[in-house]
Design a protein around this nucleic acid. Structure first.
Lengths: 142, 142
DNA sequence: CTGCTTGCAAAGGCTTTGCAGAACA
DNA sequence: TGTTCTGCAAAGCCTTTGCAAGCAG
């Protein structure tokens, strides 16, 4: 996995997005957000760490974890709890769903228009909706 | 959480179910299956460990983990990857979905009839379906 | 008997945390 | 200057594994 400057969103734009989400744009946060925002993708903390530091050390592991958690709380990215061994962060914040290949761990987006969750049951008492996640598990044809 | 004998499925019946799933019925597996099969519920390994050993030590931690993994592979229970910190095992094997309270971690079943996943997109090339999980995240009304 | 299963303790992987120093306003 | 943030290392939690002893068929 390699990222050249041409593929990346300009830092100024990233800073604007961070501010919109009430996140003060430190150097490290901009570096991380720049990678995530530049295209829709699913990355775990370890992958972000590797990409952000591919040229020279820029962000520590602890900061990557803490920053991804912060971004998720602020709605900049979405946590995906699908792989039992680690959390993935989805930079696509439009409402959508996922294919999950149980053999390879691969995640693929599904546009929300391609799934009809037509009818939803009544929520448990005293709760309000927080989102609907549809995961279509697939495995390789044998 | 407490379990009396009256609430539990008879061991003979549990052994039959294990055999149907190609699982040789050792003492420990019967103990664990008996708890899981006796009613629909969502339990993590630690909870199973606690319940199975509530009177006297019967099954070790390693065996609980390995047995739950075995049961899941054999289709006796279903792994739920919803809580980011641990795996839950669902003894309800009928097709259904879940409410997940992000504040409390509470899981509640949704009958499959109460959700319409009407239209599904084409699967990625070379894959076959393995299941559809719908998670309706809710949080407490503020 | 022969292979499968168990239990213990240790190891492993992912994530969080405590705290001192650095950056920022 | 006071607050926030970062980095390092250590700790924490859930889960898996290596291996010797035990059990099932």
């Amino acid at each position: 996995m390699s990222y050249t400057n041409e593929e990346l969103m300009p830092k100024s734009e990233v800073i604007g997005i961070l501010r919109q989400h009430q996140i003060s744009p430190t150097q490290q946060r901009v570096e991380i957000a720049q990678i995530l925002m530049s295209k829709p993708q699913h990355l775990c903390a370890e992958q972000v760490l590797e990409i952000v530091n591919q040229d020279r050390p820029k962000v520590s592991k602890a900061t990557v974890y803490n920053t991804l958690g912060l971004f998720a709380r602020k709605g900049l990215v979405q946590e995906l709890i699908i792989d039992p061994t680690k959390v993935y962060y989805d930079s696509n914040t439009r409402h959508h769903h996922h294919f999950y290949n149980v053999d390879t761990g691969e995640l693929v987006d599904i546009n929300k228009e391609e799934v009809d969750v037509a009818r939803l049951p009544n929520l448990p008492m005293g709760t309000i909706p927080d989102g609907v996640d549809v995961v279509v598990r697939v495995r390789k044809a044998s």
